[in-house]
Each structure stands twice: as structure tokens, then as C-alpha cells.
């Protein structure tokens, strides 16, 4: 695999790796330190990153794969449409904002506003699996797709306050028995049974586990709760037309 160190000032080399990846090949950039938009709009190929890539990592991703050995900063996988992002570390705020398809796997924890306004459409379904814990406003405005938080690492509650605020479609799975604090009235919570576990969670946890060399079966031994929009709560009454 072609490799370049971003710490050296070698624009040519970096460009050749990006173009190699864009053409469907493999490439690695080491020494990442805040360089923004790495993997932005990538359609194919596999981009391996080491270090701390900058904001906007894999934004508008269209089908390629981006692997990060390190922590990602803010706004990773922004408006992502397809493909795969795997972060062997943590991610910052506003991860996967407006994501419509593809899978994002984070081994560690993520910041505030994770998975806000994720969507699903036809064969596209956005999937976000977080190994650790998340900050507040997880899955706010969720409009489709699946968010799974495993709580394998880190301290304290599995997610912060106002989880799923304003969500109206999609599902948030939390590997815990504890219902998050400040959950809105318009959400419903149920314990996940074995069937749902097997069909809705397992396939993604299996991929997550294989990416980070973990034992999927062991992770799945624990209980999960699911948070969804409560269809019986109507929104229309909020307004009165003049």
C-alpha cells in the first residue's frame, strides 16, 4: 500500500495517494494533525489514516472506506451518503450530522450531538455504532437509520441529557437497562427482545467487532433498550392557521 507522512511537506505524494484511493485503490496517510476534509466525497477505495485527522473527516462520503487509527475531531461523516467510516479511537461533536446512508463505527466515545438528523431512504440506511459513550442530544431530530451505543468503555451514563429530542423516525439502541434522563414525552422506550437483537443490532455489532477485533457474541450478551418516536403523539396541533 502507498503511504505518505503528512508531517513532511510533500503535497505531490499526498495528492498521488488521494488519487490512488479515488480510483478504487488503497492508500495511507500517517501523521495526521488537524488536516480537514480528509476523504471528503470519496466514492471508492480505502483510505487509511493515522494520527488526528481534522474536522469534516469523510464529509459527503459517497462509497469509499475511511479507517482512522486515532481520534477524529468534530463534524466527521457530515452529510455522509454511503460507504464506511471506522474510527479506532474517539470522535468529537456533531458526528454523522444529516447522514443518509453507510456505516460509521467508533471504538471509543463521541461528543455532543452525535447522529443528529440521521436519515434512511429506500436501500440507504444510516448506521452509527459507538463502542463507548456519547454526550447529550444523541440522535436529536433523528429521521431514520440506527444508532447503537454499546458503553464498552468510559464512565458514567451511556448517554447524556435530551437523548432523541425531536426524533420522529429511526431507532436508538442503548446497551443498558437505564432509561436516559430527560427523555421527551414524544418518545417511547422498550426493552429489546432476542429477535430484534438478532435482526436489528447483531449484524452491525458483528461488523463493529470484527473491525476492532472484539467478541461480538460477548457484547450481545447484555440487555438493550430501544428508543423510538411515539407515533401516537401528534405534532400538527402545535399550530393554528390564521
Amino acid at each position: 500500500m502507498k503511504e505518505a507522512d503528512l508531517r513532511k511537506n510533500n503535497e505531490e505524494e499526498v495528492r498521488s495517494i488521494i488519487s490512488e484511493v479515488s480510483n478504487g485503490g488503497d492508500g495511507m496517510l500517517t501523521g495526521c494533525l488537524g488536516q480537514r476534509y480528509l476523504g471528503c466525497g470519496l466514492r471508492s477505495g480505502r483510505l487509511y489514516l493515522k494520527g488526528t485527522p481534522g474536522n469534516g473527516l469523510a464529509a459527503y462520503l459517497e462509497g469509499g472506506s475511511v479507517y482512522v487509527d486515532g481520534n477524529a475531531q468534530d463534524a466527521a461523516a457530515d452529510t455522509m451518503n454511503d460507504g464506511l467510516v471506522a474510527i479506532k479511537g474517539s470522535a468529537g461533536d456533531a458526528l454523522s450530522y444529516g447522514m443518509r446512508g453507510g456505516r460509521v463505527y467508533v471504538l471509543g466515545s463521541t461528543g455532543y450531538r452525535t447522529g443528529v438528523h440521521m436519515k434512511a431512504y429506500k436501500d440507504r440506511k444510516s448506521v452509527l455504532v459507538i463502542g463507548g459513550r456519547t454526550g447529550s442530544f444523541l440522535g436529536e431530530y433523528l429521521a431514520g437509520g440506527v444508532i447503537i451505543v454499546l458503553g464498552l468503555s468510559g464512565e458514567g451514563p451511556i448517554t447524556g441529557y435530551f437523548c432523541g429530542n425531536g426524533m420522529y423516525a429511526g431507532t436508538i439502541y442503548l446497551r443498558t437497562d437505564d432509561i436516559p434522563k430527560c427523555l421527551s414525552d414524544s418518545l417511547s422506550v422498550h426493552a429489546v427482545d432476542d429477535d430484534e437483537k438478532e435482526t436489528s443490532i447483531m449484524p452491525f455489532v458483528r461488523e463493529f467487532a470484527s473491525l476492532f477485533s472484539l467478541d461480538a457474541e460477548k457484547i450481545m450478551e447484555s440487555r438493550f433498550i430501544a428508543i423510538e418516536a411515539d407515533g401516537s403523539v401528534a405534532r400538527g396541533q402545535h399550530y393554528a392557521a390564521v
Binding site: Y37, C40, G56, A59, Y60, A94, Y97, A143, G166, R235
Partner: peptide, 27 residues
């Protein structure tokens, strides 16, 4: 329903706007 949040949740400050502008330019 199609809901547009009041803010862009990836823009909470002017430098975040710059980040979105540049990400669009990049793509």
C-alpha cells in the same frame, strides 16, 4: 415529516460556517 432544525447542528459559530463552506468547496 421533513424537519429542518433551526440551526445547522454542525454550525454553532462563525468558524463552523467556514468549515461547512470549505467542505462544500472541497467536495
Amino acid at each position: 415529516d421533513a424537519i429542518s432544525p433551526a440551526p445547522h447542528h454542525d454550525i454553532y459559530s462563525i468558524e463552523d460556517l467556514s468549515q461547512l463552506v470549505m467542505s462544500i468547496k472541497e467536495v
